[in-house]
C-alpha cells in the first residue's frame, strides 16, 4: 500500500513539474470541441443536441494524447525495469500508475467539461450526470489506455498504433457515457447507462492492471 501511494505521489510530482503536458491535453480538448460549431454551424439547438456526443468524443481523443507518456518515459530512463524487478506485484504498480494518470488527466478533463458544455449550450439538467458519467468514463479510458500503452511500448509508430488499439475498445464507454447525458437531458432516468458504466469500470479495474502487468513484463524480455 505504501509503495502504491509513493508511486502515485511520484507520478503526480512529475506531472506537476511538466505541467505543459497536462495543459496541452486540456488545450486540445477545448480547441477540438470548439471546432464543431465551425463545422456544423452555430445553431444553438443543434449544438445542444450534439453536445454530449461532442464532449465525449473530444475528451476521448484528448486522453489519447496523454497515454504515450504513461510508461514511455519510465521505459526510456530505465525506471520501469526497476519497477518490474521490484518485489511488489506488478499489477499493483500498474494500478498505481493508472490512478496517477487519472488524477493528472481525468480530473482536469472532468473540470474542463462543464465549461465546454456551456460553450456548446448543453441543457442545465445534464451537468450532474455529465460529471458522474465523465468520472467513471475517464477512469475506464485510463485503465484501457494503460493496457494499450503497455502493449505498444517500444514499438514503431506507437502513437498511431495506440489509437488504433484503444479506440475500438472504448466504444462502449462512448455509447453509454453519451447515452447517460442524453437520457438526463431528455428527462429520463440516467441510472441504467450509469450502472452499465459502473459495471464496465469494475470489469476494467480487475482486468486492465493485470493485462498491463503481463504486457509490461513482455516489454522487458
Amino acid at each position: 500500500m505504501k509503495t502504491v501511494v509513493a508511486l502515485i505521489i511520484r507520478d503526480i510530482r512529475i506531472a506537476l513539474r511538466q505541467l505543459s503536458d497536462t495543459m496541452s491535453v486540456i488545450a486540445f480538448f477545448i480547441i477540438a470541441a470548439s471546432l464543431f460549431p465551425f463545422g456544423v454551424g452555430p445553431d444553438p439547438n443543434l449544438l445542444a443536441r450534439m453536445a454530449p456526443g461532442i464532449l465525449w468524443v473530444t475528451a476521448l481523443l484528448a486522453a489519447m494524447l496523454s497515454f504515450d507518456r504513461l510508461f514511455q518515459t519510465d521505459y526510456e530512463d530505465g525506471t520501469l525495469e526497476l519497477l518490474v524487478i521490484a518485489p511488489h506485484p506488478l499489477w499493483l504498480t500498474a494500478l498505481a500508475k493508472i490512478i496517477a494518470h487519472w488524477l493528472t488527466t481525468g480530473i482536469p478533463l472532468l473540470v474542463a467539461s462543464p465549461v465546454i458544455g456551456i460553450m456548446l449550450n448543453l441543457e442545465p439538467t445534464g451537468y450532474g450526470v455529465l460529471i458522474v458519467a465523465m468520472a467513471l468514463g475517464t477512469a475506464i479510458i485510463s485503465l484501457i489506455g494503460a493496457l494499450g500503452a503497455a502493449l505498444t511500448l517500444g514499438s514503431r509508430r506507437s502513437g498511431v498504433l495506440l489509437s488504433l488499439l484503444v479506440i475500438p475498445l472504448v466504444v462502449p464507454v462512448l455509447i453509454f457515457g453519451a447515452g447517460a447525458v442524453d437520457a438526463a437531458i431528455g428527462g429520463f432516468s440516467a441510472a441504467q447507462p450509469l450502472l452499465v458504466l459502473g459495471g464496465l469500470f469494475l470489469a476494467c479495474l480487475v482486468l486492465c492492471p493485470w493485462g498491463s502487468s503481463i504486457a509490461l513484463r513482455l516489454s522487458m524480455e
Binding site: L147, L151, T152, S155, L161, L165, G211, L218
Partner: peptide, 27 residues
C-alpha cells in the same frame, strides 16, 4: 486491423506476436 498492426509493429517479431496475443484475448 489493430491486431495485424500491433503484430507487425516491433522489430523483434516474438514481442509483436505476444503483444498482439494479449490484445486478441482482451478483444
Amino acid at each position: 486491423l489493430a491486431f495485424i498492426a500491433l503484430a507487425n509493429a516491433f522489430d523483434d517479431a516474438s514481442r509483436g506476436e505476444k503483444a498482439s496475443a494479449v490484445l486478441a484475448l482482451v478483444g
